[in-house]
Amino acid sequence: MASLGARDQTLASNNHVEIPVYMNSSNDMEAKNERQEADHDDSQVDYSQRAQWLRAAVLGANDGLVSVASLMMGIGSVRKDIKAMLLAGFAGLVAGACSMAIGEFVSVYTQYDIEKSQIKRRRRNGEEGVDETKEKLPNPAQAAVASALAFSLGALAPLLAAAFINDHKVRLGVVATVASFALLFFGAVGAVLGRTPVVKSCARVLIGGWLAMAITFGVTKLIGSAGLGM
């Protein structure tokens, strides 16, 4: 019996299986928590809230670029004088910046009035959190200045590109090339900030700019040629 007991103990010891238990170190746990917090913060970002200042900044600069570059290409189609192109481009910069500022001011002020009226109605109804909402009201003056500055910055690209080139054909080519690269840049910036596909955004902006410059160039040349022929 003693031998049987010893043999059973030997078999039990031979059949004993150790199951390793792996525990995460503190560094692994901290890294995992940081990743989870980063993913949570990114998921909580409301990118639709960026639409207002994106429209006033990136899109304003894109408008300035396309408008002034197209205007200069149109004047360049009928006039070889560099002064005529630069004067037309500068006039387009000033007029466009003023137009953007006034339009943005009126648009945002309308939104401001609507939201302010809504706050007054909520206050009369005794709702909570009205003061916090009031702090988030849009600023019409700030939006107007941002639009004017953005338009001006975008318009400076074709103006600077043409300022130091005397040859007419080379000047037109440089303006179109600089405008194309600037369009790609603005399209990429807008896509990254708005978390939209970069390639599609750049393609839309670039093709739209090319169409604007080509149509302005062709129509102005057609009208100018007909006028000169008369």
Rank of each mutant, 00 (worst) to 15 (best):
F217P: 03
T216V: 04
S67F: 02
Q118F: 11
E37C: 02
D81G: 03
K80G: 14
A191K: 07
R121E: 06
L211I: 08
W210Y: 01
P20R: 10
E37M: 03
L87S: 13
K32M: 13
S43Y: 13
Q44L: 14
L206Y: 01
A212W: 00
T110Q: 13
G103W: 11
Q44M: 12
I207P: 04
A31Y: 14
V94Q: 03
R7E: 14
A57G: 06
S201K: 03
A57C: 05
G103P: 09
L149K: 04
A95W: 08
P140L: 02
G218A: 09
S147T: 08
W53M: 02
G89R: 13
A61H: 11
K120R: 10
L87V: 10
F181G: 15
L222K: 13
A226K: 12
I102W: 05
P158D: 00
G126Q: 06
S48E: 13
P138R: 01
S201Q: 06
T10K: 07
N139Y: 06
V106C: 05
R55H: 02
Q9T: 11
S3V: 11
R122V: 07
V58K: 09
L4P: 05
R7N: 12
A150Q: 02
Q49F: 14
Y112K: 15
A176H: 09
A84Q: 03
S26F: 15
L160Y: 06
L184R: 00
V198W: 11
N139G: 07
G103Q: 10
S13H: 11
C202G: 12
V58G: 06
T196L: 14
G154Q: 01
D131L: 10
A155C: 05
T216N: 03
Q111G: 13
N15K: 14
M85W: 02
P138N: 01
D81I: 03
M85E: 03
G126L: 04
M29W: 04
V205N: 07
G218L: 07
K80E: 14
F164S: 15
V68W: 06
M29F: 10
A61F: 13
V199N: 11
M72W: 00
Q36F: 12
K169N: 08
Y112G: 09
D42T: 12
R122Q: 12
Q142I: 00
G187H: 04
A38F: 06
L156T: 08
S152E: 04
I119D: 14
I102M: 04
A182Q: 03
H168L: 00
G96K: 04
F185H: 07
L211M: 06
V170S: 13
E115N: 00
V219G: 01
R79Y: 11
S70M: 08
R7W: 13
Q49S: 12
K32V: 13
S13E: 15
A61P: 12
A69W: 08
T133R: 14
W53A: 00
L153G: 09
D42C: 07
D63Q: 00
V192S: 13
L211N: 03
A179T: 15
E30Y: 10
V199R: 11
I114D: 08
N166I: 14
I119N: 08
E34A: 09
F185Y: 07
H40F: 06
G76Y: 04
Y22M: 08
V145K: 06
G76S: 01
A51V: 05
K80S: 10
